[in-house]
Write a protein that binds this DNA or RNA. Structure first.
Length: 330
DNA sequence: TGCCAGGCCCTCTTTAGGGCCTT
């Protein structure tokens, strides 16, 4: 029934697209992991649900089937399944510092003797096991929004894109949004008033149920969803929350948010760069040599870049999924 | 008349200013 509902909704909203990215993203990671032949490769830590934070890791491969149907993970069909490969590094060791009220993580890399401290927010510290358990069932989704401006009160979302980093069929979601007002900043993203003020472009209140359905379809039952964005703490997330509130919806309790901006600061600091240095998404993309796919400042294009930037950042920081969750916020 | 986004981080340091990031 869920699948039917989802398809129906998407038919009603023709600007919504769920393109097929297949497993190209995962496959590239897999190749990198094999090419390196060493103890780690970027992205490996990020997706190692079997990662053991206290070290003592044995190198191993796991092979699992992932149901990638848009209709949800609860369904038994595996007709559109894909194979996922994971490799667990041996030489990375995570240590944690504990200060009341300060969430921080000291990450040491035994191969380079680098020590990086990653501080994010002030909240209650949970146990390592708690985060490790959450990581096992976590879904990481990169997302980006385009808006009519910076003001969450007066401006509106005009485009939203998401990408589930597990990849597979229906892993991405992108749509224009009808703001029911003029778009004054077309020069930034190329989205004009005429493009979005159309009857066949969904308004936010029509889109939210579809967005919720998309996220649910990617979510592992019982697991959390971590929505990652660049500068999300002060822009994307408050904007999204405001739009949900305006449409009388609430952000689901099992949604967490993570911001790549503090990760980028931590990486730059660890490399001796003066902080603040250039840590915009574009600067990070150029720093890591990531080619631009599609026009800049369009949501899906930026999400593709963000997904790759996130891989590099987590590799540089030796940050596993549990670390991302630890640095997340609600 | 002045403001018009807001949070984080750094510095010439600590209560303020400036720069960065997001569209």
């Amino acid at each position: 029934m869920k699948t039917i509902a989802m398809c129906f909704s998407l038919i009603q909203v023709p600007r919504c697209r769920i393109p097929l990215i297949a497993n190209s993203w995962w496959e590239s990671l897999y190749k990198l992991g094999r090419k390196g032949g060493g103890s780690s490769s970027y992205g490996v830590l990020l997706f190692s649900s079997n990662y053991e934070p206290e070290g003592g890791l044995s190198r191993r491969w796991t092979r699992r089937t992932i149901n990638t149907r848009t209709g949800g993970n609860n369904e038994s069909s595996t007709s559109n399944s894909s194979i996922r490969h994971e490799i667990i590094p041996e030489t990375t060791k995570i240590q944690k510092s504990r200060k009341v009220g300060i969430r921080s993580q000291i990450i040491s890399d035994s191969t380079s003797n680098k020590i990086i401290t990653y501080n994010v927010g002030t909240t209650e510290i949970e146990s390592d096991k708690h985060y490790a358990d959450l990581a096992k069932l976590a879904t990481i989704i990169c997302f980006d929004i385009e808006t009519t401006g910076f003001g969450r009160e007066k401006d509106r979302i005009i485009e939203i894109a998401c990408q589930d980093l597990r990849g597979g069929e229906n892993s991405t979601f992108q749509t224009l949004v009808n703001p029911e007002r003029d778009v004054p900043n077309e020069q930034i993203h190329g989205i004009s008033t005429r493009m979005v003020n159309r009857y066949d472009v969904p308004r936010m209140k029509e889109l939210i149920p579809i967005l919720l359905q998309y996220v649910k379809s990617r979510q592992i039952p019982g697991g959390v969803v971590v929505l990652v964005s660049h500068n999300g703490r002060t822009f994307d997330v408050p904007f999204l929350k405001k739009e949900f509130s305006r449409c009388s919806y609430e952000i689901p309790q099992d949604w967490l948010f993570a911001d790549t901006l503090p990760l980028a600061r931590a990486v730059m600091k660890s490399k001796g760069s003066k902080v603040p240095s250039k840590i915009s998404l574009q600067a990070l993309r150029e720093h890591y040599g990531i080619p631009l796919i599609g026009p800049a400042h369009r949501a899906l294009s930026d999400v593709h870049s963000l997904a790759l930037v996130l891989q590099r950042l987590t590799y540089d920081l030796k940050l596993p999924v549990s670390g991302i969750i630890q640095g997340s916020f609600k």
